[in-house]
Design a protein around this nucleic acid. Structure first.
Lengths: 140, 140
DNA sequence: AGCGATTATAATAGTGATTACTAATAGCGG
DNA sequence: CCGCTATTAGTAATCACTATTATAATCGCT
């Protein structure tokens, strides 16, 4: 059904997330959307992003403490640079990897899986000095 | 070497994280630590947690946007309830699962891996009404 | 012992992302 | 037309976290 009342910016905001194509923050979306609709409010962006997430049209993730959004797509892993916050997709078959976890826990119902790999992006590897003493053998 | 200067609360804070045994937030640690050392400050808890993370003695993770801490241990996955925020460990061999990702991306250096599974804990499954229309086949 | 450099501290003010609240507006069913 | 409700812009409030500030404890050195 078409929305009633004030003009819905839902579609604009979804289009904007789609056009930004990376993993934009709410603020990124806001900055971009106001180019089209200069009067749009940050609160409106948040509200509609939340709605889009609830509808399942957009995926929300937290990287380094702040929410980022992407249009729903096949599951994939994310690389996150611990220094500059850069994010890259890894389009390997996560769902395959994750299968053994499907029915592990007693009573829990799994809905969504995130595989996040933290490290250094190429740029920050060049810049950053001593690398963290790897706390053990995470990737052994 | 023993710490110089004012009395270090490092050890107390590490002990507290260990005793809480779940995935306490900074505030959880603060509340607990002040039972032993009532004059301790929240900033001190944050400062020392950061230090412990840097030393590799404690692991930091963000669930649903807020930092939680646990003593370092073998890598494992986490279940996160999207409703109440409950967290459970899944002690399967994550490192095994993750091997195919080790050297995937060009130029990136992987350091740490998190596998997070979001869903509903047993309690919230009983309570919560309609469950989200699963946005596709994440766990197919 | 006494002194300065170092480092941790408590208390508090500040920051930045997110949410809640407010009054206003626009279309629909009756 | 008349409420009804979804939505809005704008702003205040919240919440986790960080920076600042002034203070105090301990060390190495003399």
């Amino acid at each position: 059904m078409a929305p009633r009342g004030a003009p819905s910016h839902r579609a604009l905001i979804e289009r904007t997330v789609r056009s930004l194509r990376g993993h934009p923050t709410a603020d990124d979306v806001f900055m971009e959307a106001r180019k089209v609709e200069p009067s749009i409010s940050l609160a409106t962006v948040y509200r509609n992003l939340r709605a889009l997430v609830a509808e399942g049209r957009v995926r929300e993730r937290q990287f380094l403490g702040i929410s980022r959004f992407e249009v729903s797509q096949r599951p994939h892993a994310h690389l996150v640079c611990r220094t500059c916050g850069a994010i890259a997709d890894v389009h390997s078959d996560v769902s395959e990897l994750v299968k053994p976890f499907r029915q592990l826990p007693k009573g829990w119902r799994a809905e969504e899986v995130d595989l996040e790999i933290r490290g250094l992006c190429p740029k920050c590897q060049a810049t950053s000095p001593a690398q963290l003493p790897l706390p053990g053998d995470l990737l052994k």
